[in-house]
């Protein structure tokens, strides 16, 4: 029974991983790629680790997998946030068809104020 649940979790997790990396290849600019890749790959990997917990039971590997889930859930959005901020500050513009960029507007205003 628990092996079946583990197998289902593994299949769902790996399909989310595939969708996330497909988004990394297909989407037009870095911010959209970050959106797809971060969300899908984080949940996909967490589901694979949860599958390990169901497969091996609540022993040494299972507890380590649970700690790994907790760590990935904290670190992955923080890393995405750091990359997005670094990219914007290093001067990467949004995709041409984007609707608005309040962040660039506000930062240009600050730069003019400081001069």
């Amino acid at each position: 029974m628990s092996n079946t649940i583990g197998l289902i979790l593994l299949i769902v997790g790996i399909s989310f991983d595939l969708v996330g990396t497909l988004g990394l290849v297909r989407l037009p600019d870095i911010y959209n790629r970050l959106q797809a890749a971060t969300k899908c790959v984080t949940l996909g990997t967490c589901m694979i680790l949860l599958g390990v917990v169901f497969y091996t039971g609540f022993n040494s590997s299972g507890v380590k997998a649970l700690l790994c889930i907790w760590f990935i859930l904290i670190s992955s959005p923080t890393g995405a946030h750091a990359i997005a901020r670094g990219a914007h500050r290093s001067g990467i513009r949004l995709w041409e068809q984007s609707k608005m960029d309040k962040y660039a507007d506000d930062r240009e205003g600050e730069a003019i104020k400081q001069e």
């Binding site: 989310f16 969708v19 497909l22 988004g23 297909r26 989407l27 911010y31 995709w95 608005m100 660039a104």
Partner: peptide
């Protein structure tokens, strides 16, 4: 996100 990525027309409308 999966719906937006798999869809051929990519219904996205991004901005900050």
């Amino acid at each position: 996100v999966a719906y937006r990525v798999i869809n051929i027309y990519m219904p996205i409308n991004p901005g900050i």
